[in-house]
Design a protein around this nucleic acid. Structure first.
Lengths: 147, 147
DNA sequence: ACTATTCCTACCAAACAAGTGGGAATTTAA
DNA sequence: TTAAATTCCCACTTGTTTGGTAGGAATAGT
């Protein structure tokens, strides 16, 4: 299975919520969790990597919360997934050729290199701003939702 | 980490060996393992899924071995990876929308759907015949190799 | 019969995934 | 100055996946 873990998936949803909230001050993790129907306790784990990738900013204490560290236009899905899942390459030999002495002439490795490029490109193509826009327009047509 | 496991990676190499050997009768797993420097015991595990995907054909008993079940032009990396790794989608909700009640309106899911398409397309682009051709041409220029 | 093979079933250890929990540190506000 | 609201940090748990190893049965050629 070649799967993005819940870290990446929930993280993307968390970031979309922050993007929707962009400009309205810090947002509580509790509220994000509620809107996305996820556990606060689990979302907590996603915070440190998102912070060290400088994608979010936190404010501690009462009336604290989280904000995006950049505008939604400047953050892509690639940034988010990279921060939470690590390298986007399908094999370690892509980013560290030295782990395998076949790297210099391995023809299957060439495929993994190419695959990494298309995955990166696809994810880099979508900014949080795009997602929010899509979210707003689909709400218009979609079934009524409480949030 | 979004990684292809050794199953998919070794499986691709195994299939390349069979493609190189295509037309020369059945090839021993022992020989494949030797050429690719992999354990026979581990490669054995890759056989059942490759067989049920009808990518290889086996001949039992002495002077037995394995052959491709189709010509190298007809087998793509997508076939191989699908057989060994399962679905190519980054999230279960892509192929089974019912696993999540958000599937109908989830904007991040749309991304996973798109990602699956680009991954599939990239892998489907490369046939075993392409890989063998590349292998032969790089041997010409590359350093001398025993195999 | 003997040998060479594929084939099938188990087993194992380490890593990872997904999540829960306790409680310390920080900040605001009464 | 105390209480409340939050983020932050560390540890633990449980189940699954990964990457193997191993024994031996079944099959076929010589």
């Amino acid at each position: 299975m070649i799967r993005i873990s819940t870290k990446g998936k929930y993280g993307a949803r968390l970031m979309v919520q922050l993007a929707i909230n962009y400009g309205n001050g810090p947002m509580l993790l509790k509220d994000i969790a509620e809107k996305e129907n996820l556990s606060v306790r689990y979302l907590e784990h996603l915070i440190p990597p998102l912070k060290s990738a400088r994608l979010i900013h936190s404010i501690r204490g009462a009336r604290g919360g989280y904000t995006l560290a950049k505008t939604p236009v400047e953050i892509t899905l690639k940034d988010i997934i990279r921060a939470l899942e690590g390298p986007l390459s399908p094999s370690e030999c892509v980013e560290s050729p030295e782990v395998c002495d076949r790297s210099g002439f391995c023809i299957t490795r060439d495929i993994w290199v190419e695959l990494e490029k298309t995955i990166s490109a696809t994810l880099a193509m979508h900014t949080l701003a795009d997602l929010v826009q899509k979210y707003l327009s689909t709400t218009y047509y979609g079934e009524a939702r409480s949030q």
